[in-house]
Design a protein around this nucleic acid. Structure first.
Lengths: 196, 196
DNA sequence: GTCTATACTTGGATAGAC
DNA sequence: GTCTATCCAAGTATAGAC
């Protein structure tokens, strides 16, 4: 199992391609043949970099989670208040969705969960937990400094917001014309704002 | 292509099994072998009832959508106001989720959308549209009779609510311990209620 | 309506040369 | 690091007997 932080250039191209394929087709929906074609190498060459398909999936997910967490920390590092931070949060999902209605890697893998290797499910769980923790922090801060309503710190809000983001991409894709995470967050933000 | 309204007993057992398999494993995740084993027949016997896997998927989806619409009409036929109707709506999803965290058929197929036959995507689109139409109606009624806040008739609410339901199942499954659609709706209802 | 047998394809993975 | 060749399993689908 190769860790994303020590990827050779070839391995990185493979991970790049696999990431998009998982977002668009799912883990069960893409094949080494798909990856090979897009990277411009042959199928068995992939095994030189990733012993199994699960290994490749784990590396894709770890890198995705790592980058997502960096983006979350970057939002926190900026000077905005909770409402702006939640809007910026929605933009992270909107960025994926805006490209051919790609799903969140972990949203896709979460759907396929029952047919995936345990190690992949563990990665998905980690991604979601990072999201819930970050949302809890932002909601608590917003409630403390008055930029969010008192009920914003209710323990069910993080999961509700995360579900709304993941669901927005899912439904938008299913409708083939749907609005995305940005619009859904825009609808929910007033509900979290004081004096609504 | 066999329509769900004219299923023989054998075909019905096949559809029953396939429905659960799609909810748990997805369209790309289940095989005729899985269906055959659970029904207690052999793989090729399935082709006597459904020429192709896509045919089977279409029948499953049509029956699912039909039953779901009946349930929606049944909720509307009862005497509750908009808030109770929305809670009852969430229960439809909760019923699936409560059984081994099964997904909505169309949530699962929506995720797999890019790898599915057009005809299946059309069915998924239809299901979602039925949901949006029903939600629009309930929200408008609630806003008219004062049981919901004025902003409840905003055109983005139906998609937000549907996304939250689908996402709740997805995230709950990914977390392997999550709350489901019921809790998410319980969190959103106050935001739609007057005087919140 | 179900069976056995089988065809054909794809997919993940391995061996070994270059 | 990539290739060709190959293996094996699984998956969809068909033919034809019962």
């Amino acid at each position: 199992m190769k860790h994303f932080s020590e990827l050779t250039p070839s391995a990185e191209r493979i991970v790049d391609v696999a990431e998009v394929l998982i977002q668009e087709l799912g883990f069960n929906g893409f094949s080494f043949e798909d990856v090979a074609r897009q990277v411009g190498i042959r199928k068995p060459s992939i095994h030189h970099h990733f012993a199994t398909k699960v290994d490749l999936g784990v590396t894709v997910t770890q890198r995705y989670t790592h980058r997502f967490r960096e983006a979350l920390l970057h939002i926190e590092g900026r000077s905005g208040k909770a409402p702006e931070r939640l809007s910026a949060y929605a933009e992270l999902f909107e960025n994926a969705y805006a490209q051919n209605r790609r799903l969140c890697i972990c949203g896709m893998l979460g759907a396929e969960s029952d047919s995936l290797a345990d190690i992949l499910n563990t990665e998905v769980k980690g991604f979601f937990q990072i999201n819930l923790d970050w949302l809890s922090r932002v909601l608590a801060q917003g409630q403390a400094d008055g930029t969010l309503a008192a009920h914003a710190s209710h323990s069910a809000w993080p999961q509700t917001l995360l579900a709304a983001m993941e669901g927005a991409m899912l439904v938008g894709r299913g409708l083939q014309s749907g609005q995305g995470p940005r619009q859904v967050m825009a609808r929910l933000l007033p509900a979290l704002t004081p004096g609504s």
